[in-house]
Amino acid sequence: MHARIVLLPGDGIGPEIVAQAVRVLNAVADRFGHTFELTEQLIGGAAIDATGDPLPADSLAACKSADAILLGAVGGPKWDDPNASVRPEQGLLKIRKELGLFANLRPIKPLDALVDASPLKTHIVHGTDILFVRELTGGVYFGESGRRDGGKTAYQEMVYSEAEVERIVRLAAGLARGRDGRLTSVDKANVLEPSRLWRSVTSRVMKEEFPDVKLEHVLVDAMAMHLLVRPRDFDVVVTGNLFGDILTDEASMLPGSLGLLPSASLGVPRSEGGGPGLFEPIHGSAPDIAGTGKANPLATILCSAMLLRDGLGLPGEATAVERAVHDAVAAGVRTADIAAGGPSVTTVEATDAVLERI
């Protein structure tokens, strides 16, 4: 296979972890006889510094013509002025909107060898296997916003249409059908009107199109508690943009570190006229450890596996990468964030251990 992959290293530790994922992708290409054409583009704070735009036109054009996109991270203290008119995160929101990436998939599955790394008790965490499906291009992050009363009052609308809810629920229900057949929809229907629409549309779609999938509605505040008490009870969880953002960051602590969790942002499949998927670790830019060699590359390496499977249709290659990561961790390879005070390896050394096992 010949595939064009755009790299968006971004800010903070982004360039370091993307560089390690590139090593893994090159190893996969060599082993399985593929050609991956890798090109690097600007996004986030680095793009602001270079061009004044968090997503320059050249970056967007390259992404639109790619087969898949690998992103590191955006943001940092340098660009953290809340009153700034241009912010790194705007580049991320724009690329999601421009490419129609309406669904963010975030698997939460603690590695057996790292169950003890979780702040929760082992018997609560062990066996957890949740797939979050977060709606990514609607809701409060894309609603009309502004200031009034001379800047003393701020507002931001939460807006969802039936069509937006239908497409994310269909995708999530299809994934649930291929797993354990259970879908949990999270909303705030007791208070918010968009959530009432979300719940009614979800119920209708599931009844009419997915009667074989068991549906459960849970309020977002209750879900925040359930994740800490009974995470094993959930299979696929679908929710809106804001709730999904918060809940998945909370759930990331189940495996013990943000540095272990990948994500995929997907839209309409390429076979149906859609664009490329975007793959990124769920952690941030971690500017406090940038350049120290302490960054955990495993989430980004696992992103490369999702890229291979969901972006390029190469499940065997993806499984090889995932198995290599699991085997490395089982052999005791630990970066500082998961070492629990014990011996740790550097970013490059962790990748070396994975490469030895591919």
Rank of each mutant, 00 (worst) to 15 (best):
H283G: 07
G44M: 03
D11Y: 01
D327H: 10
I301P: 00
K152L: 13
T184C: 12
P211E: 03
D58A: 15
S285F: 12
T346D: 01
L8T: 04
A47P: 02
D30N: 07
A290Y: 02
L183M: 04
P194K: 12
H217F: 03
T248L: 06
E164G: 11
S200V: 12
A290S: 08
H326L: 14
G151Y: 10
R230W: 00
H226V: 01
A154I: 02
I13D: 07
E166T: 15
E144I: 06
A251D: 05
P269N: 06
N104A: 00
K64E: 15
R196F: 09
I130V: 08
H226K: 10
S85F: 12
S59F: 00
A353T: 00
S203W: 04
A295F: 03
R204M: 09
D235I: 00
Y155E: 02
S118M: 12
L25G: 03
M158L: 13
N296T: 04
A336R: 14
T51Q: 03
K294R: 08
A264N: 03
G100R: 00
L192R: 15
D49V: 02
R170C: 09
R4I: 13
L92K: 01
V218E: 02
A339F: 04
D352T: 02
K214G: 05
I130E: 03
R147M: 11
P82C: 08
V18R: 09
L175E: 14
P88N: 10
E40R: 13
L111Y: 14
V140G: 15
A50Q: 05
L8E: 08
R323Y: 13
D11W: 02
K109M: 02
I338V: 15
H226A: 07
G45R: 02
A328I: 14
A61S: 13
E157S: 10
R270C: 03
M158N: 11
A103W: 00
R87I: 06
I246Q: 03
E166G: 12
G240S: 06
A3F: 04
D249R: 15
E40N: 07
L131K: 06
N190A: 12
P110M: 03
L228F: 11
E144V: 13
T300C: 08
T239W: 04
A113M: 04
S59A: 09
H126F: 11
R323W: 11
P281M: 06
R230F: 01
A286Y: 10
Y160V: 13
E208C: 06
R232S: 14
D112R: 12
E356N: 05
E162A: 15
P287G: 10
